[in-house]
């Protein structure tokens, strides 16, 4: 949510800038570069009016963003420097103590590690499986659309409903999973899949994979549509096998889609809350706590709203750093001008 704010804000400011720039471009100027540099420094009265006009029209949107996104962020930062129970005036100023409490809390640092495991685990599991399924489903076959639907259904299902269903399936002893296993003569873990501290996080990861695989497959399939068919034909004429075609043509050309999906998956994993909350509540023995579940239980269950606010600011910063570095190091190549992109991604068959 917080990231969405940053994105929205930068989007809005970009659009303001772009409009102004395009306005400049429309006017007859000999040198493009010079004119763009001039934007900041001097403005003609007509430009000023135009800017005011733009400001007038975008102000409702800006105000909405300010009230429902910026203000809560500022409030969270404000709360994070007070010892506050959630009601009454903010009087007990504690400075950065809440941050110290969060960062020295083993439950929170473990939660960060759990988030990282889920980021890594989601990509490591969903990328190969999703890619494999997408490549298979991309071949023409009779029940193609039926299969696509089946794989996409878990993603459409509400997270809460999916969570409750899996919680019941995974019940120790009486749950469907354990019942089937015991019929096959395999003994499930005594405390159940969600009750054994060593297994719980992996069980959550498995459920998340089931839930979000559909999104990966659909995105990959969409990306596959963008691969020009001439390349396939050329490769076939040159005698490339199906496997070679996938490896040398499809997957490299799917790059931008894979990288965008990776970004979405990373952000989703960082902010993971609902599935964990329903399946385990962060337990057993804090083995599945995420940063988000930590801050919710610290705030609503223990009424340490100052600590919860500090945790939310930490989560915001972590998400921001990861998002910016991902943009910088991974997504950047996708937003480069065309000539550079073809240079960096020569297709060899």
């Amino acid at each position: 949510m917080i990231l969405a704010v940053a994105q929205e804000v930068s989007y809005v400011s970009n659009s303001v800038g772009n409009d102004a720039a395009s306005e400049q471009l429309r006017q007859p100027r000999p040198d493009k570069v010079q004119s763009q540099q001039a934007v900041g420094r001097r403005r003609k009265p007509a430009d000023k009016r135009k800017t005011l006009e733009i400001l007038f029209f975008i102000s409702p949107a800006l105000i909405l963003i300010a009230v429902f996104m910026l203000l809560p962020i500022i409030q969270a930062i404000r709360f994070s420097v007070y010892n506050w129970k959630g009601f009454g005036p903010l009087v007990d100023f504690v400075g950065l103590k809440n941050y110290a409490r969060v960062l020295q809390n083993e439950v929170f640092t473990d939660a960060m590690i759990h988030n990282l495991i889920i980021i890594g685990g989601s990509i490591a599991l969903q990328l190969p499986i999703g890619l494999g399924i997408a490549l298979l489903l991309n071949r023409k076959m009779k029940i193609q659309s039926l299969l696509r639907t089946i794989i996409f259904v878990p993603y459409v299902l509400s997270e809460v409903i999916a969570g409750v269903i899996w919680f019941q399936l995974l019940q120790p002893q009486y749950g469907v999973v354990d019942t089937i296993m015991s019929k096959l003569g395999i003994q499930g873990p005594a405390q159940g899949w969600l009750g054994t501290p060593e297994l719980a996080l992996w069980t959550v990861l498995a459920v998340l994979t089931w839930k979000y695989l559909g999104l990966a497959v659909i995105l990959f399939l969409a990306g596959l549509q963008g691969v020009p068919s001439e390349l396939y034909e050329a490769a076939e004429i040159d005698g490339a096998s199906w496997w070679q075609i996938q490896r040398k043509i499809t997957i490299p050309l799917l790059g931008p889609t894979l990288r965008t999906w990776g970004f979405l998956s990373m952000i989703g994993s960082l902010q993971l809350f609902d599935m964990v909350w329903i399946l385990t509540g962060g337990g057993p023995a804090n083995s599945t706590t995420t940063m988000a579940s930590f801050l919710v239980s610290e705030g609503t269950k223990r009424q340490n709203f100052g600590v919860a606010a500090a945790a939310s600011v930490v989560l915001f910063i972590v998400a921001l750093i990861l998002a910016i570095s991902y943009q910088q190091f991974v997504l950047k190549r996708d937003s480069q001008p065309d000539e550079d992109r073809t240079k960096s991604k020569k297709v060899k068959v």
């Binding site: 009230v67 809560p72 969270a76």
Partner: peptide, 12 residues
């Protein structure tokens, strides 16, 4: 998540 809706309304 931890916002004061009243202040928010007033501000708006």
């Amino acid at each position: 998540m931890v916002s004061k809706s009243r202040t928010a309304k007033f501000f708006a």
